[in-house]
């Protein structure tokens, strides 16, 4: 079984975002890059399957993105346990549609049959929440987004065999608004996007890091995949910071004095009611 895991490289969550002087993008020179946290859940799920079945599971990490200033995340994926990696060198951060198209064509070009696709539910830089569902549609696979549970079982028969002749069923749980859970029972292949809560991603081990250096990493250019500017369809312009808030009012609670405390809280209540007009309407 071939499991493709889509991985994006994003700035660390604690990064303070500065803009380029011409406002065409963010300033990237001091950024610490990490694997998109939701993609870690996707990769971990693939590795859990590999750990469980021991043989016959091939995990391929695929990334579309700029190689300057860093390409570390695919090496991290290999060090965590992925078998191979494919990089599409995009020179810049592409919008979701051409990203999904590049992933599709890179996977096709690898000539490996696709049995399962896993991705993070969204990247924490652009937060589009689009690529996994687009990819599902491009492969005509069922699309199940933001899964919190993935329960795979090997079957002796089914309606469609995977590339190696095996049959697998999966029970997927996804959490939607208000905490409601939807459960899907499907046969592979499927394309899932992963949410926090699915598993606890492992750290790369030292032997893993050593082994990763010898693993196969293929690079394609966008030209190799016949993707050009016309596939972008949208353009980002004029990056800007949100307006800063004027300083607010700050009070110190009189510790241990419930009566004075109540007077203070009533004052804040009155401000919320009469000045902000957000409560007691």
């Amino acid at each position: 079984m071939n499991i493709f895991v889509c991985i994006k490289q994003v700035p660390d969550t604690e990064t303070k975002i500065e803009l380029k002087s011409d406002n065409t993008y963010i300033e990237t020179k001091d950024i610490k890059w990490i694997m998109n946290p939701y993609d870690e859940f996707a990769l971990e799920q693939a590795l859990l399957i590999k750990d469980h079945y021991k043989t016959g599971i091939n995990v391929i990490a695929v990334r579309v993105g700029a190689t300057n200033p860093s390409t570390e995340v695919l090496r991290t994926a290999l060090a965590m346990g992925a078998d191979e990696a494919i990089l599409v060198d995009a020179k810049e951060n592409l919008p979701p549609y051409p990203t999904a198209l590049a992933l599709k064509r890179a996977i096709d070009k690898s000539q490996k049959p696709v049995d399962l696709i896993l991705a993070g539910k969204q990247s924490i830089d652009y937060d589009n929440f689009q690529v996994p569902q687009m990819l599902a549609q491009m492969f005509e696979f069922p699309s199940i987004s933001q899964i919190v549970s993935f329960n795979l079982t090997k079957e002796s028969a089914g309606s469609k065999a995977l590339s190696d002749g095996s049959f697998f069923k999966v029970e997927l749980k996804r959490e939607i608004e208000g905490g409601t859970i939807e459960i899907y029972n499907l046969e592979l292949p499927v394309c899932c996007s992963c949410n926090k809560g699915l598993n606890v991603p492992r750290y790369p081990s030292l032997p893993g890091i050593m082994k990763a250096k010898k693993k196969n990493l293929i690079t394609y250019s966008l030209q190799d995949l016949d993707i050009n500017d016309n596939d972008k369809r949208i353009e980002y312009r004029n990056f800007y910071h949100p307006p800063e808030k004027a300083p607010g009012k700050k009070y110190t609670y009189p510790e241990g004095d419930a009566n004075k405390g109540r007077v203070l809280v009533e004052e804040v209540f009155n401000l919320l009611k009469n000045e902000a007009k957000v409560i007691g309407k």
């Binding site: 303070k16 924490i124 369809r233 910071h241």
Partner: peptide
């Protein structure tokens, strides 16, 4: 918003979509 609202950007449709945005 981008980067969870740490900055924002304008997004311009380039009008080369085969069907609606």
């Amino acid at each position: 918003p981008l980067f969870a609202g740490k900055c924002l950007a304008n997004v311009i449709p380039l009008d080369n979509n085969p069907k609606p945005y």
